[in-house]
Amino acid sequence: MKTFMREFKAFALRGNVVDMAVGILIGGAFSGIVTALTANFINPILNVVTGSATYGLADVAGFASAFLSAVLNFLLIALVLFCILKAVNKVASLGKREQAPEAPREKTCPYCREKIAIEATRCPHCTSVLEEQPQEAVF
């Protein structure tokens, strides 16, 4: 059972699955904005231009409030998804340990500026003898 839960966590928190879920939810909320824009602004304008309908001030206010409601719905969904993703990322990073930085494996030749192995005593590119700089003692 423990391995099953570990495998499910790895699957569910994988970047592609979470990104796809967020995309679907944001896309659904955005389609609500597009629908509200079409139903509450574009169609009434076309109705007025073609003469098939006339609207009063109360109708215009209703159209505007319906559109603003769709925009607010989108923003709330985006905010909730953001908070959920922050929590999911926090949970996913709980088991991970920070890795210590690796020791450098390369150095730069002071003569030709090519990358060479850190243990090299002679540059393989320009064949210069690499002398170690004596370290001054600090008192």
Rank of each mutant, 00 (worst) to 15 (best):
G27Y: 02
V48E: 02
A39C: 14
N40W: 06
M1L: 14
V60F: 14
F139W: 15
L13Y: 09
R6F: 13
L76T: 07
T121R: 03
F63P: 00
T35Y: 11
F41S: 01
E114W: 07
E136M: 12
V34F: 01
E106S: 08
I45V: 12
S52M: 14
K96G: 10
R14N: 07
I118C: 03
A12S: 13
S69T: 03
P124C: 04
C109A: 05
G23Q: 06
I77C: 02
K9Y: 09
G15C: 06
V71N: 02
L81N: 13
E102G: 08
E114L: 07
N47G: 13
S52K: 15
V129C: 10
I26E: 07
L76A: 13
I26M: 08
N40H: 07
K86G: 10
G56Q: 13
A70T: 04
L81C: 12
I118K: 07
Q133R: 13
L75M: 14
V138D: 11
T108R: 07
V71L: 03
K96W: 15
P101M: 00
C83A: 10
A103V: 11
R122E: 03
A117H: 01
A100C: 10
P44Y: 14
I33D: 01
M20N: 11
K90S: 12
L79W: 02
K96M: 15
T3F: 14
R14D: 03
C126M: 05
A92P: 04
K86M: 09
N43H: 12
F82S: 08
P124N: 05
A53P: 01
I42N: 09
F4Q: 15
V91F: 09
A61T: 08
L75H: 09
F67D: 05
A100K: 11
Q135I: 07
F30M: 03
K9L: 08
E7V: 12
E132W: 08
F63Y: 04
E7H: 09
E114C: 09
K115Y: 06
K96D: 12
T54F: 05
K107I: 04
S52R: 14
A120N: 01
A39R: 10
L130C: 05
G62C: 08
R105V: 06
Q99L: 14
T108V: 08
I77P: 00
R6W: 13
F74C: 00
C109G: 06
D19H: 08
F11Y: 11
E132A: 13
R105I: 05
V71C: 02
N43L: 12
C109D: 08
L75T: 14
L72C: 00
A78D: 04
V80E: 03
F63G: 03
A120G: 00
G28R: 04
I45Y: 10
Y111F: 10
K86N: 13
A117Y: 03
L94Q: 11
V48Q: 05
F63C: 05
